[in-house]
Each structure stands twice: as structure tokens, then as C-alpha cells.
């Protein structure tokens, strides 16, 4: 069983790190994984996206056209990935800045106010993990608790003071996603 997860947003929103965190978690969980970034002459405010694949078997392609899940942190990312997610897949939308609703009816959609929650927690930069926390409730390949344990050892030294806030972001995202399930 293979799950492909795209995380996409503006540069600076932490899309690449969020995808790496999932890959590190998969490694810790003894699974196969790949992390494939967009890269290029890009800058803060430009677009950034990555694909993380998690599988119980060796992984062929590190990119796919139709991922199992997408976390979209801004409107351009929604425009790009809404048509591509596999039917029945998961689409997590940062509803704080993406007003448009999802048109497709064959997806599990989670609209999560990632930026608002991040602000409440004290730092707008943890939006990525709020949304990842929400994603994990619908994507049973990786467990929230495992992601939290992995985060504790992969968070860069210079960001260690933000560890507690990042853990809270994951938890808040997960908690928000549960009641949201009824609204989908």
C-alpha cells in the first residue's frame, strides 16, 4: 500500500519541511519513503511544493500525477491540486486564506483555519503543522504520536525553542479535523 502526499503553498509557509517531517516519520516507523521537492529560482512568496511517498514496499517513482492526499496552503495550490487528487483522497485546505470552496464531491475535504490557529498559538509559521495534524486523521499510514516523536529529534537546533508550539500545532490540527468530519 502506497500513499502519496503533496504539500503546497507560498515559499516560507513550510511546505517543504512539513513533507520532510512525514518522510522522517515514515523512516522512523520502518516504512519506505521518498521526499521530492519543487526546486528552482524561487524565493519567499513564490510557490513551493513537495511530494512525500510512504509505502510498505520499495518506491518506484518519487512523483505521481494523482496523489492520495494534498495539503493546500493557498489559493494557487488549491487550483493546481484540486483536479489531481485521486478520487476518494484527502484534500486539506488552509481556510484562513483560501475562501473558495472545493468543487469536487468525490474527495474527503478538510477546511482548517490553519493561519488563525497558528496565530493563536503565537506564530503564524506553524500553519503547516496545523494542517498536517488535520491530514493525519484521514490518512492512517502515519500516526500523530509517531509524527510528534519524530519532530522532537528532527527539528533544527536553532528552532528547538519552537518545539512545544509545533507539537501543539499538530494536536490542534488533529482535534479540529475530528468535528469537521461531520461538516464534510
Amino acid at each position: 500500500m502506497q500513499s502519496e502526499i503533496v504539500i503546497s503553498g507560498f515559499g516560507g509557509q513550510g511546505a517543504l519541511f512539513a513533507g520532510q517531517l512525514l518522510a522522517y516519520t515514515a523512516l522512523d516507523a520502518g516504512l519506505h519513503t521518498t521526499w521530492f521537492p519543487s526546486y528552482g529560482p524561487e524565493m519567499r512568496g513564490g510557490t513551493a511544493h513537495c511530494t512525500t511517498i510512504v509505502s510498505d514496499a520499495p518506491i518506484g517513482s518519487p512523483v505521481v500525477r494523482h496523489p492520495r492526499a494534498a495539503v493546500v496552503m493557498n489559493l494557487p495550490s488549491l487550483e493546481r491540486y484540486e483536479p489531481l487528487v485521486k478520487a476518494g483522497g484527502v484534500l486539506v485546505v488552509n481556510s484562513s486564506i483560501v475562501e473558495r470552496h472545493v468543487q469536487r464531491t468525490d474527495l474527503q475535504v478538510l477546511r482548517v483555519p490553519g493561519d488563525d490557529v497558528a496565530q493563536e498559538l503565537g506564530d503564524g509559521k506553524v500553519t503547516n503543522l496545523v494542517l498536517v495534524g488535520a491530514l493525519l486523521t484521514r490518512l492512517p499510514v502515519l500516526e500523530l504520536e509517531q509524527v510528534k516523536r519524530t519532530l522532537e529529534h528532527v527539528i533544527p537546533e536553532r528552532r528547538r525553542n519552537l518545539l512545544a508550539m509545533n507539537l501543539q500545532a499538530l494536536e490542534r490540527g488533529a482535534a479540529l479535523a475530528d468535528p469537521l468530519a461531520a461538516a464534510v
Binding site: 520532510q20 518522510a23 519513503t33 521537492p37 518519487p62
Partner: peptide, 10 residues
Amino acid sequence: DGSLGQMMEP
């Protein structure tokens, strides 16, 4: 190639 250079894998 660029994808192998840029990707991460265990």
C-alpha cells in the same frame, strides 16, 4: 539527474 540530486530517501 536533478531529481535524484534533490530528492530525499532513506
